[in-house]
Deep mutational scan, measured.
Amino acid sequence: TKVFYNGTYVEFNNPEKAKKYAEKVAKKVGGTFTEKNGQFHVE
Rank of each mutant, 00 (worst) to 15 (best):
T1P: 06
T1Q: 05
T1Y: 15
T1W: 15
T1K: 05
T1L: 06
T1R: 05
T1E: 02
T1F: 15
T1S: 09
K2A: 06
K2Y: 10
K2I: 08
K2C: 12
K2H: 05
K2R: 12
K2F: 10
K2S: 05
K2D: 01
K2W: 08
V3R: 00
V3C: 05
V3L: 02
V3Q: 00
V3F: 02
V3G: 01
V3P: 00
V3D: 00
V3K: 00
V3H: 00
V3M: 02
V3A: 02
F4W: 15
F4Y: 14
F4H: 07
F4G: 02
F4L: 04
F4K: 02
F4R: 02
F4I: 06
F4T: 04
F4C: 07
Y5R: 03
Y5E: 02
Y5K: 02
Y5H: 08
Y5P: 01
Y5A: 04
Y5V: 08
N6P: 01
N6W: 07
N6C: 12
N6R: 12
N6L: 12
N6F: 09
G7Q: 06
G7C: 10
G7H: 07
G7W: 05
G7L: 05
G7T: 04
G7A: 05
G7K: 05
G7E: 06
G7F: 06
G7N: 09
G7I: 02
T8L: 10
T8N: 11
T8G: 12
T8Q: 11
T8C: 11
T8I: 11
T8P: 01
T8D: 08
T8Y: 14
Y9L: 06
Y9P: 03
Y9E: 07
Y9C: 08
Y9W: 13
Y9M: 10
Y9F: 12
Y9D: 03
V10C: 13
V10G: 02
V10I: 13
V10R: 12
V10A: 07
V10E: 06
V10L: 10
V10Q: 07
V10F: 09
E11Y: 12
E11C: 13
E11L: 12
E11Q: 11
E11T: 14
E11G: 06
F12H: 02
F12P: 00
F12Q: 01
F12S: 01
F12C: 07
F12L: 04
F12T: 01
F12R: 01
F12G: 00
F12A: 00
N13R: 12
N13K: 13
N13M: 12
N13Y: 10
N13Q: 14
N13E: 15
N13I: 11
N13V: 12
N13S: 15
N14S: 14
N14E: 10
N14K: 07
N14V: 06
N14Q: 07
N14M: 06
N14G: 06
N14F: 05
N14L: 07
N14C: 10
P15W: 15
P15K: 15
P15A: 13
P15H: 15
P15D: 05
P15Y: 15
P15S: 11
P15G: 06
P15I: 13
P15Q: 10
P15V: 13
P15C: 12
E16Q: 11
E16P: 02
E16I: 12
E16H: 11
E16D: 12
E16S: 10
E16M: 11
E16K: 10
E16Y: 09
K17P: 05
K17M: 15
K17W: 11
K17S: 15
K17C: 14
K17D: 15
K17G: 09
K17L: 15
K17Y: 11
A18Y: 00
A18C: 03
A18T: 00
A18Q: 01
A18G: 04
A18I: 00
A18L: 00
K19A: 09
K19H: 07
K19S: 06
K19P: 01
K19M: 09
K19G: 04
K19Q: 09
K19C: 07
K19V: 06
K20R: 13
K20S: 11
K20F: 08
K20N: 11
K20H: 10
K20V: 11
K20Y: 08
K20A: 14
K20Q: 14
K20G: 07
Y21K: 00
Y21P: 01
Y21V: 03
Y21N: 02
Y21C: 08
Y21S: 01
A22V: 03
A22G: 03
A22S: 03
A22I: 01
A22D: 00
A22T: 01
A22L: 02
A22H: 00
A22P: 01
A22W: 02
A22M: 02
E23A: 12
E23I: 11
E23Q: 12
E23G: 05
E23M: 12
E23Y: 07
K24C: 15
K24I: 12
K24P: 00
K24N: 11
K24F: 15
K24T: 13
K24Y: 15
K24A: 15
K24Q: 14
K24W: 15
V25Q: 07
V25M: 14
V25F: 12
V25L: 15
V25E: 05
V25S: 04
V25T: 08
V25P: 01
A26S: 07
A26T: 03
A26Y: 02
A26E: 00
A26V: 05
A26K: 01
A26Q: 02
A26H: 03
A26L: 03
A26P: 01
K27T: 09
K27R: 11
K27V: 09
K27L: 13
K27H: 11
K27P: 00
K27M: 12
K27S: 10
K27I: 12
K27D: 08
K27G: 08
K27C: 10
K28P: 02
K28M: 15
K28Y: 13
K28L: 15
K28V: 11
K28N: 10
K28R: 13
K28E: 15
V29A: 06
V29W: 09
V29H: 08
V29Y: 12
V29F: 11
V29L: 12
V29P: 02
V29Q: 06
V29T: 10
V29R: 05
V29G: 05
G30P: 01
G30Q: 08
G30F: 06
G30E: 05
G30S: 07
G30N: 11
G30Y: 05
G30D: 06
G30A: 06
G30I: 03
G30M: 06
G30L: 06
G31S: 06
G31M: 06
G31F: 04
G31V: 05
G31C: 07
G31Q: 04
G31N: 03
G31D: 02
G31W: 04
G31I: 04
T32A: 07
T32P: 02
T32E: 06
T32C: 11
T32V: 12
T32K: 11
T32I: 13
T32F: 14
T32H: 11
F33N: 04
F33S: 06
F33D: 02
F33A: 09
F33E: 01
F33Y: 14
F33H: 04
F33W: 14
F33L: 14
F33C: 14
F33G: 01
T34G: 05
T34C: 13
T34N: 07
T34D: 05
T34S: 12
T34Q: 10
T34Y: 15
T34W: 13
E35N: 06
E35S: 07
E35C: 12
E35V: 12
E35H: 07
E35W: 11
E35Q: 10
E35D: 05
E35L: 09
E35Y: 13
E35R: 06
E35F: 13
K36I: 14
K36A: 08
K36F: 10
K36C: 09
K36M: 10
K36E: 08
K36D: 06
K36L: 11
K36H: 10
N37E: 11
N37Q: 09
N37G: 09
N37W: 07
N37K: 07
N37M: 08
N37D: 14
N37P: 03
N37L: 08
N37I: 04
N37T: 04
N37S: 07
N37F: 09
G38E: 04
G38N: 06
G38V: 00
G38C: 05
G38I: 00
G38Q: 05
G38S: 05
G38F: 04
Q39W: 07
Q39Y: 09
Q39V: 13
Q39G: 10
Q39E: 14
Q39H: 15
Q39F: 07
Q39K: 04
F40I: 08
F40W: 13
F40Y: 13
F40T: 00
F40A: 01
F40P: 01
F40N: 02
F40C: 03
F40L: 07
F40Q: 02
F40K: 01
H41N: 06
H41W: 15
H41Q: 06
H41K: 05
H41C: 12
H41G: 02
H41V: 12
H41P: 00
H41T: 08
H41S: 05
H41E: 06
H41D: 04
V42I: 14
V42Q: 01
V42L: 04
V42S: 01
V42E: 00
V42C: 03
V42W: 04
V42Y: 03
V42F: 04
E43V: 15
E43S: 13
E43K: 10
E43A: 10
E43W: 14
E43N: 12
E43M: 14
E43D: 09
